[in-house]
Structures are given as C-alpha cells and as structure tokens.
Design a protein around this nucleic acid. Structure first.
Lengths: 134, 134
DNA sequence: ACTTAAAATGTTATATTATAACATTACATT
DNA sequence: AATGTAATGTTATAATATAACATTTTAAGT
C-alpha cells in the first residue's frame, strides 16, 4: 500500500512541515539548522527524511540548486518525473503538471530510439510578480 | 567577439580534450585525477576551466549527476539551455537539439504567466543499445 | 500478547562537490 | 613599454551528501 502522509514518522513530519511552510525551496542544511530544536541533530537525519519524502512523492528535489520543495498537488504522481518553473529573481518555484509533458517527452525520446522512463525539467525565467517589477 | 575553441588556454584545452575523448559525462574530480600529469593540481583549476567551457557552450553540466559533458554540436546554441537523454543503464548521454523544445517550453511557461529564459531537461530511460540487451 | 522482520533512528566519521582569498603571471590592446 | 583584463597557482575551507554500525520503533503474522 502507498504510504500516506498520516503515517510519516516524527522526523519525516518535522522535515515535511518546514518544507510546506516555506515559500521557497530549502537546502538540506538550512532545514537542519531550522529544526535543531526539534531533536534533529545530524545531516543524515535530514537526508533520510528527505529520501523517504521524495520516494513517496511529497517532496521533490530541484537538482540544479540542490534544494528541496514540498509538493502541493494532492494526488501528485511526480514520484519520478518533475517539471518546474524557477524564477531567477526571487527563487520561487512552481511545479508543472499534466501528462502532455509526459507524452511530449516520450515522443522526443522515441525519435532517438530511447526508451523514456521519467524526466526532470527545470525552466528558468521570471515569475509573474518579478516580471511586473522589472 | 565570441571565444572560439582555438583560443582556449592550456588548462581549458586540457579539460576539454579529456571530456571530448570520454564516452560518458565525467565528474570534476575524475577529470582532476585523470589530468594531474598535465600540470593541473587543484580542483579549482578544473572548475575554472569548466566554468569557462560552459560559458562558451563547449561543455554542459548534467545537473542531476554533477557531471560534465563535451558538446558535440558544431554551432550548438546551448550556452544556456540544455536537453539530454540519459541512459540509466550505461550512463551514456545524448543531447537533444531543435527549437521545437524551446517553443514548447515557452508555451508551457506562458500558460503560467512565466517569462521563459532558458531550460534544463533531463530525460531518463534506456538507450537503444541497452534496450536491446534487456 | 509474543515474535519477528523491516524500517527508522542516533551517532560519529568521512566522502564528495565546490568556492574563497590572494598573490602572481600571461597576454592582448593601446 | 604601459596598462588592464583574464587566467593561473596555491592553500584553505565551505557546502553537500553518504558510510558504517549499534539501537530502537513499528507493523504484521501467529
């Protein structure tokens, strides 16, 4: 059975909480420093919680920034594939959904006789807010 | 004026050479160990060469693997955006080109009122060779 | 309830990836 | 030759992530 957020362990909940209350992606050591009062003392405890949360799809990693973000989509199937819009000005991140991405990438891969399994897409630019300001 | 490969410096040439002769992406410290006989002694020398090569578009970074690959496209405009097919079995990497990716991502971004600047796409799966073997 | 296997934890140490700081050298353009 | 920019060399250190191992918690079956 899939693991729901209800039966997360203490450490996992602690890490997920801080990611969910953050408006931007957080780095592992930022998470660590922020929750040391809650009994988490070592990097490994953070990384282990992150690994689990990523595995069940509640958290995604932004590879180009070594940072982590909570998934806001209820039934997000991004356990494997992820697609983000990343603002270069304010570092905010929006997750793209929709299977059109999946089918588009499958096709691109097929053209090269490549068997698509999953993907990671990071689009950089300016978010709506920052577009207006500049 | 754009910097062509002819006027690369010694360190830059050394690093580019090893990347071009590799069949897979290489990690920075792998590069370092492989070229210590050529006078490069410190990580920083490798990273500086990589930075320059990336800047001029001769090398791209595979973010999810912290590794670097030489660009095989003559007039590659991927100084900013990159798109890869990455084989999970043999770690080989193929770079995708074509502006259809650009226009597709622009559209995806626009749907979210996001001003597209560049992207990084990593598609994971099985390359043609490994598909046949499995 | 007891057993047991799997998962999670706590802890210390260490590996891996990348940059800071600063003095020096090469080199193209005046 | 003078000058400014880029590149280099070197040492130290920052930032990111995992190894190893002993212990505890949890969940599932009997």
């Amino acid at each position: 059975m899939a693991i729901a957020s209800e039966n997360l362990t203490k450490n996992q909940k602690t890490v997920l909480d801080i990611l969910e209350s953050a408006s931007e992606p957080l780095k592992a050591y930022t998470i660590l420093f922020d929750i040391q009062k809650k009994g988490i003392k070592s990097p490994l405890q953070v990384y282990r919680a992150l690994d689990k949360l990523i595995e069940i799809g509640k958290v995604h990693k932004i590879e180009s920034r070594n940072s982590y973000v909570a998934c806001k989509h209820e039934g997000c199937n991004a356990k494997t594939s992820t697609s983000f819009l990343i603002c270069e000005n304010c570092d905010s991140v929006t997750e793209l959904t929709g299977n059109n991405l999946f089918s588009y990438f499958s096709k691109q891969a097929e053209k090269n006789n490549f068997n698509y399994k999953k993907h990671n897409l990071e689009i950089f630019g300016l978010c709506e807010n920052c577009k207006l300001k500049n």
